[in-house]
Design a binder for these strands. Structure first.
Lengths: 339, 339
DNA sequence: TCACAAAATGTAATCGATTGCATTTTCGGT
DNA sequence: ACCGAAAATGCAATCGATTACATTTTGTGA
């Protein structure tokens, strides 16, 4: 591999001049700049970015940590990050942590070892060091630790959940069930509060039997519904994400509910696939691209040493499709087995 | 940030000793190694990998170029790559090329500039330089240029397609339609040959009207079916991927086919979602993880200067689920509008 | 034509680790 | 206690670029 020295020799100048004709061409005369360019072409020289990074101690690279590359929810967030990063001369690399802290550490080490300048984490499964604050430039998107010292960007989970349930109430539903995510997930607490507040606002009483929890997967939604429908007679169901909503929809159909006539289902996320289900899923859309853009902007501020907002909340949006409708008229509800 | 010099000063040794106690501990006495370890801990030192990479001129990092991070088909391939990479001390970073050659170049430049050691490309949308052979360590997985000098790993497209159509024939289907991918995609030519050969082997005549093409997206599958069912009366449909199969299934149901009673549908890929459709999709499974593992193994050979196979073909597998069945008895076929 | 500021270029230090070679220390054997 | 080999350590060059500072060249006005 040719180095700058080779180019310098061929062009008959010093390496400093070669470097300058790339970094700050205005400081080099037209004539020599041309010579250098030709020398670069004839040698097939590509600057060794490692050496440059070492010298400038920056890599113009940021790493995005994903908990699961198969989870399409993150795709548009990454696109948003990429857009803003590119506009500011940064490269984006992705790391799949496969939901493990250990793998996440590998990517975080890239920053510690100066191979990357900063991190945007789309997962909360991170090494403990972040709980006490660290000096690694990092932004969390989508998830958050409560009160942890890491700047966070996420959508309006409370507002979105409340909007979903308000919508069902407004159509006249009185018995609204809910499938939550894992209880320890802080985001779930917030969404659940939205659910509860909407019920209360509509003077509907909360029943513990109306709530089941899953782990955000299709199968957990399926299983949760199978438990749920035995213990609670409902006309509407709000799920904390689309995957579980799809699983629940499958389960509901299997046990004889017709959707949306006897059961309205609302999800959360607006996955691409939410549109492809039959019936198409009504859901709360998270503006993923905007979340990504915002996260990157916050990270840029941190990298530039500016003051960065500790928390950025992005509004959500209700998308009404065909999995939800007014409640069934009395007598046409789904009959629970054995009752 | 503390450097090795700081550690050396604190431990009262030279930087060489510090380096050695990390790189080759057996060459350092027990006593000093301990001193060094304490010094490392007390200074909070993390080695600067950039400096190391510069010196050793390797980064132990490989980059995987994805055409579209939202396409879940690639997820398990990445996992397979990651597994083998990790076992061999390599880090894996992903780059989303968003189907553009320009973005792909950015990631390829990482290798040219020594920030990464090699590339596994999951897309054929690459700069022209590869057509004539390049000295960049690279492996292509899933796609391939015909006759290009880049080692390739892909599944048995011909055999998979033929298997799918054989299966439909064996159940008694006589009118088997097909939705292909873009005609210019080399992989499509191969799959189509599998389709044709199976027809011929079953003494079924090929009709041009039985074939429509899409671009692998849900919507294109949907649109292709809407064209197809007007021009060809079929009892079975083979789609070149699952997304299009899902789109076609939606379209088929909309125009009144019942699946699988009146129409059997078989896809290709085995996406996670193929299992979640109603009815569940029969498909040709590509062993994605194995493709990833193989690709990484090939890349390792290249990186180690060993002889690498130019082409590796991974067998596929037929997964029979509920979107396919024996053909309808005479009289119960779907009636084409207006006929 | 000369003086002097501005522009162009070169010299050499630097980034932070690794490592070949030289030097010092340790230790077993006598 | 002494010798020599082996083990441990240190010195300094090196990877390939960037850049402060020094030096040379160019160009301008009188």
């Amino acid at each position: 591999m040719p180095t700058m020295k080779d180019v310098a020799r061929v062009a008959g100048v010093s390496t400093a001049t070669v470097s300058r004709s790339m970094m700050s061409p205005e400081r080099v005369s037209e004539k020599t700049r041309l010579k250098v360019q030709q020398a670069i072409a004839s040698t097939g020289f590509t600057p060794n970015a490692i050496a440059r990074n070492l010298r400038k101690s920056e890599s113009k690279t940021i790493v995005v940590v994903l908990p699961d590359i198969a989870n399409m929810f993150f795709a548009d967030i990454v696109r948003g990050i990429q857009l803003v990063a590119q506009q500011n001369g940064y490269k984006v690399l992705l790391g799949d942590s496969v939901h493990t802290v250990q793998q996440a550490s590998v990517y975080i080490d890239l920053v510690k070892t100066k191979q990357a300048d900063g991190i945007i984490s789309l997962t909360a499964e991170l090494p403990a060091e972040f709980k006490s604050g660290s000096n690694i430039p990092m932004v969390m998107a989508c998830e958050f630790f409560e009160g942890y010292p890491v700047p966070t960007v996420h959508s309006d989970n409370y507002g979105g959940a409340k909007r979903a349930v308000d919508y069902l109430r407004d159509m006249g539903h009185k018995r609204i069930a809910c499938i939550t995510g894992p209880k320890e997930n802080p985001l779930c607490g917030v969404r659940k509060q939205g659910y509860l507040d909407s019920l209360q606002q509509g003077k509907l009483s909360f029943e513990a039997a109306a709530v089941e929890s899953g782990d955000f997967s299709f199968h957990s939604g399926y299983a949760a519904f199978k438990r749920l429908h035995k213990q609670y007679q409902m006309t509407a169901l709000f799920c904390f994400n689309d995957m579980m909503a799809m699983g629940a929809m499958r389960a509901a159909m299997e046990v004889g509910y017709s959707v949306p006539d006897q059961l309205s289902i609302v999800g959360f996320d607006d996955l691409l696939f939410a549109e492809y289900t039959t019936p198409q899923l009504t859901t709360i859309r998270q503006p993923q691209k905007q979340i990504g853009e915002t996260a990157m902007k916050v990270l840029l501020k941190i990298l530039n040493g500016e003051q960065a907002p500790q928390e950025s909340v992005i509004p959500t949006q209700l998308l009404v499709r065909s999995s939800s409708a007014v409640p069934p008229v009395a007598g046409s509800e789904h009959k629970v087995e054995g009752s």
